[in-house]
Design a protein around this nucleic acid. Structure first.
Lengths: 214, 214
DNA sequence: AAACTAATGTTACCGCTAGTAACAAGCATG
DNA sequence: CATGCTTGTTACTAGCGGTAACATTAGTTT
């Protein structure tokens, strides 16, 4: 009885929480990461204190919101990373999956990459800088795991895998951010160029005539 | 007469501006990127409106502050990039210069990378997302220029250079950010691992026994 | 010397934000 | 009926970025 009752309550609370998150999602996607708690509460048809009871503070709400999107994106990336194809094809598929995602929903992307908000003086949770971009960290760790599991890197392989995981994710992110802002080429060209970089074309390239070479 | 008078005034204004920037620097380095305009004004021994007369709004002050540090870091990077050595050595020197800089002054680094502040409703300048990390963009463009000038990349070389510039900078940044937070290895190891990645070791690595390989 | 100009500085305010305390209503269980 | 517990409200605080209006001081012109 006691347990079933608790689960009932918890179910109700979880459902409510999901509704609130969906409302918050709508507002954040409409107004950008600066959406105020008041606006989110209004969208959900309630008032602020309820949001605070559910999520603690703005950081909590944003973390929960980011978690949903991050999980979804990570699932897509894992699928591309696990496809049955050779290494280069899989790397390109993963890059393309990421770039497609940020291209399709740039507002979600901006929110995930710049959740650094708040700025309130008292600090009941939500330390900016630590929560700046958990998506990047999670992707980096994920990729590091995959690399470490599947590649034989000799001595120091664990360190190499982790460095490469975070490094490759950062490369993908920065190039994607720049590309999304300037659109200097097609997505396929970007994917090919990045894969070429990872495939050692930087080291293999010849010097330009008259210079010492980069 | 008229001109000398104007220059005198401008000199005085520039000197004042520099003083204010130094005060702002002290506060931001002490309190983090959330430093308030009031706190900065107090540190400078004045009150808010003067700051606003000099810098327009908070975004202007932060942009001016970021420009100083960004210029300084870019100068160091250019020096490493121009050193007389072979390509690999120069890449490693550049990586190490960047990592040394963020290691030596992590607060400056955090400020430069997360200047996304404000969140005020009326938007007299300072669009978050566009000003999120101009340092990364500038470094990316700088590196792209160097790559394009010195490397012979065949057809599509301009696009390749720019993609690689931003990609490599992003790799350096993300790996550095992760490394700064977790300190999983020495700086030299990180530099070597990243250079190895850029030198194609990802493509060259063998599959681990029993798996299809990344 | 007197008056005008211009920059520098102040106080006091606006509207907004995140976050909270205090109180009211529905609804289960003793 | 009374006791809790969750859901909801209104009304508030403290602090933020930003601005208007008013002093004050200095240099230039007449």
């Amino acid at each position: 009885m006691d347990t079933t009752q608790r689960t009932d309550q918890q179910r109700s609370a979880d459902r409510r929480r999901r509704e609130l998150l969906e409302a918050a999602d709508r507002v954040v996607l409409r107004d950008g990461p600066h959406a105020s708690m008041n606006a989110i509460a209004a969208e959900a048809g309630i008032t602020k204190p309820i949001l605070y009871r559910h999520f603690g503070d703005k950081g909590g709400l944003y973390a929960a919101l980011a978690m949903r999107h991050t999980d979804a994106l990570l699932d897509s990336l894992r699928a591309a990373l696990d496809a049955p194809a050779d290494r280069r094809e899989r790397v390109e598929a993963t890059l393309d999956t990421y770039l497609s995602a940020i291209e399709a929903r740039p507002q979600v992307y901006r929110f995930l990459m710049h959740p650094a908000e708040g700025g309130h003086p008292g600090d009941p949770g939500f330390d900016v800088g630590r929560h700046s971009a958990p998506l990047l960290r999670r992707m980096g760790e994920e990729l590091a795991t995959v690399i470490g599991e599947r590649l034989d890197l000799g001595p120091g392989s664990e360190r190499l895998a982790r460095v490469w995981g975070h490094g490759i994710v950062g490369m993908m992110h920065a190039a994607g951010d720049w590309w999304l802002g300037e659109r200097p080429c097609t997505r396929a060209e970007l994917v090919r160029s990045l894969a070429d970089l990872l495939w050692g074309r930087l080291a293999a390239a010849g010097d330009r005539v008259g210079g010492p070479g980069f």
